[in-house]
Design a protein around this nucleic acid. Structure first.
Lengths: 203, 203
DNA sequence: TGTACATCAGTGAACGCGCGTTCACTGATGTAC
DNA sequence: TGTACATCAGTGAACGCGCGTTCACTGATGTAC
């Protein structure tokens, strides 16, 4: 019944991480149960500890993994557009009705940030690194000018707005409310991105 | 042992709600346990059901209560400043190191939004109403001009940015990172608030 | 004023249940000789 | 080539524990007469 093969264990580990990263985003940290998760991966619960030392360690890694996937999705989505409209593509892709609905495949920041803030150092450090990946990428899409520090600061602000807008829109019940929030945030994101650097003083 | 008095039951109910609204913000929905909560209020767990029909109903109400308290705090804090600098006071108060640290007394939106998005209709509806209270207040602080719809949309965007920034800053381990994020968000919030309405088209 | 009774906020044992983790075990494969 | 043994991913029972909810009960107060 046990099937060995070269990279078998590594594949199983990746499968567990992938399931965990999706369930984490769709249902939150509290919904990560070892039994359910291993069941999703086609295994029984006892085997979990051959791959991860504890539930907490899994959550640390799965949070980072979820952000890495978010980053890769955004990058893939954005680079489909021609260079001059990539910022618009990023903003439109993130602040879309589709993103609201696809929690398990969507941004881990929007789905998990406050919960991760309550986790241990390891989880928070990894999550911060994952967020930085996205923010750095967004900073590169901003119009030229300003210092690196200014660009990063502005990218953080815009990303924070997009995250918050998706969260608020997801709480709303009716589509007209959530649509209005997304629309306003799309406009504000671009307005902020395109406002000049000249008046900046300090970060 | 049972002490009656005129509004006794109502007072106890309020005490439970207050404890719940604080614990909800500091530790999240998963940390709301009937036993602990009733213990905090000086009672035993069985009595809970004389006040609320279920844990879920409590969470619904406590989420709204937490936002109402957030609103009242922000209003109180802001109206201490002279009218012409109230927007700055709002932004500085929300995007402060103190707010990062005071989770149980801080903004319920920043602490709970993604978790509430996963709750039932009742909880989401109440939470949306609470958020709207704050957003309407913020809209009143924005420089004059633009339609009501434009002002509300911009207030949502600014509030989303502030919420997201606090969340991201709370995930960060080191103070220099979180300080940078707060600082950038303070500047971006004011930049967005003060950018003109003239170029607006649609919402 | 005094007595009997109703009320009902609060008590705490008990319920069924699911959780994270441990551990002795299984059995297909790789390796040594 | 064949045999004996080591390895180790995966199994599933068992552990101790805490949870939300129910329910028979308590006892101080309010009310009726």
């Amino acid at each position: 019944m046990v099937r060995y093969s070269k990279g078998h264990k590594e594949e199983v580990r990746k499968a567990i991480l992938e399931k965990a990263s999706r369930r984490l985003r769709s249902d939150g940290i509290g919904a990560i149960g070892i039994k359910t998760l291993m069941g999703d991966a086609g295994l029984t619960h006892g085997g979990f500890y051959a791959h991860f030392p504890s539930r907490e360690a899994l959550i640390s890694e799965a949070g980072e993994e979820a952000l890495r996937r978010t980053y890769e999705f955004l990058k893939r989505h954005t680079t489909k557009a021609p260079p001059e409209s990539r910022l618009e593509a990023f903003v439109a892709g993130y602040l879309s009705q589709q993103h609201l609905e696809d929690m398990s495949g969507g941004c881990a920041g929007a789905a998990l940030a406050p919960e991760i803030a309550r986790e241990g150092e390891e989880a928070r450090r990894r999550f911060t690194g994952g967020l930085r990946l996205i923010v750095d990428y967004l900073a590169d899409l901003l119009p030229e000018g300003g210092s690196d520090e200014q660009r990063i600061g502005r990218a953080y602000s815009i990303f924070a707005m997009m995250m918050g807008a998706v969260q608020i829109a997801r709480v709303a019940i009716d589509t007209s409310t959530s649509d209005g929030i997304l629309k306003a945030a799309r406009k504000s994101s671009l307005a902020l991105a395109n406002s000049g650097w000249d008046k900046e003083q300090g970060v």
